[in-house]
Simulated scan of single mutants.
Amino acid sequence: MAENLLVNSIIQENLEKTYTRAQRLKIDNKSKIIVLSDFHLGSGKSRDEFKKNARLIKTVLKEWYLPKGYILILNGDIEELHRLRLPTVSRAWEELYEIFLEFKKGPGLYKILGNHDSNIPGIRKNGRCNAEIEVNSSLLPSLILEYDEYEMMVLHGHQASLYNSPFRHKMNKFFLRYMAHPLHINNIKRNFLSDKPLKAEQRIFDFARNKGIVTLTGHTHRALFEGHSEEEYLKIRIDKMIRDYMKKEEPKEELRAAISNTAKILQKLIENEDYKSRGSIYDPLSVSCLFNSGTVIHKFGATGIEIQGGKIYLTAWFDKSNTQSRVFLFDPTRFPMKAHPWIQNHTLKSDDLDYIFTRLSLLTDKKTRNH
């Protein structure tokens, strides 16, 4: 018990420092923001986790978010620098860095450090990729979005785990770069419903609730909206698909298969011994202070958090030809890019920012401080 209290105290102190050191950005109902995290950019070769969704992400960024004037927030673990050096990554993804640079010169770019890219070296003018130099010239520990008197802190989320202490970070980097990578050992596939991610999220939730702020994280690769679980999303999705099935004209085979596949995923989730949480994960009142943008390297596609028009959205992008996508999503009407009909988009959940912050202040009896 004493050890747990000590660990929690250290982590809450880390989160307080992350909050104190944050850069601030005022937003309003006219603001447009897209938050993406966990690219894990590698060498561009077969073991690069980003490669499978590279075409999707580059197209969506350049032809959807950029021309629509969205500010891009890259919320940590953009480069996989535990395994590789930055020049290796930048050479492989020069086109993507050029897109990032277009955001920086246009609507805006904010790059937040994660645990896999926190050892970015000092930027040198003799670097190979000019865009990479500019993109990494201003790196943030966190970013606070100021909405009226309220605050939303964007942080990667590794600050809530002792596993990411400086010593363990160096040891992990040494093992991955000099042992695992040369021996072609892939990253360990994390069980994102196991105790460690849940504990990290719980700590961030506790910090946010005590402070009366909203937090927007990445790190666990687990998309969250107001702390709700995958189980809830899957149940809601099945319900919607069944209603669509009842209305839909023939043929129904594709939708029937999507319902069946989603039900199987839900059943496996419920039977998973490591999945100990149900419903609103961290609080029976569902206090709205924890969001997670997920990752762009899902097998089914990519998830992110959008803010625009005074609302916040948990959104998913995927390739229509990717059959794994249909396990989770099926919405034949959402093809927003006429020039790219293979790209499909779906809003998993959305709500008004005014409601989110009002609910938070009423249920915690706190309001964020004016600055």
Rank of each mutant, 00 (worst) to 15 (best):
E271V: 00
L113Q: 05
Y313S: 06
N272Q: 13
T217W: 00
P336G: 12
A257M: 12
H116W: 11
F175H: 07
R190A: 11
H346K: 13
R91H: 06
K45F: 14
D239C: 14
M153F: 02
A92M: 10
F318E: 05
S118T: 02
L61F: 00
I71M: 07
V7Q: 14
F103P: 12
F205Q: 03
L162F: 11
L216E: 04
E226L: 09
K320L: 11
D352Q: 13
L353Q: 05
H298V: 01
C289K: 05
D351T: 15
H156G: 04
K276W: 07
A131G: 00
F192A: 09
L314W: 09
S325E: 06
S194E: 12
V154F: 06
F291C: 07
F357T: 04
E271T: 02
K104F: 08
H219M: 08
G227D: 00
A263T: 13
V60P: 05
E132T: 01
P336S: 12
E253M: 07
G42F: 00
Y233C: 05
N345H: 10
Y70M: 06
F328G: 06
S31D: 03
I343D: 01
T217L: 02
S9P: 01
S9G: 09
E254T: 14
L360K: 01
I305T: 08
Y245D: 09
D206C: 01
M246V: 13
W64H: 15
K252F: 04
H228P: 00
T59W: 05
K173V: 14
R256Y: 11
I99A: 03
R124E: 15
A258L: 05
L113Y: 02
S194I: 00
T220K: 02
K62D: 15
F100S: 08
K320A: 14
L101W: 14
E231P: 07
K51H: 09
N164T: 09
L266D: 03
W342H: 09
F192P: 05
H346N: 10
K268H: 13
T358M: 13
V60W: 04
A223V: 06
T262L: 08
S43C: 03
P107V: 04
G69W: 08
A258F: 02
G42H: 06
K196V: 15
E273Q: 11
K320T: 08
K320H: 14
D244C: 10
D244M: 15
F225Y: 11
I265N: 12
R21L: 10
N14E: 13
E49V: 11
G76E: 03
S260W: 05
D352S: 14
P197L: 12
P251D: 08
D365M: 10
T217Y: 00
I73T: 01
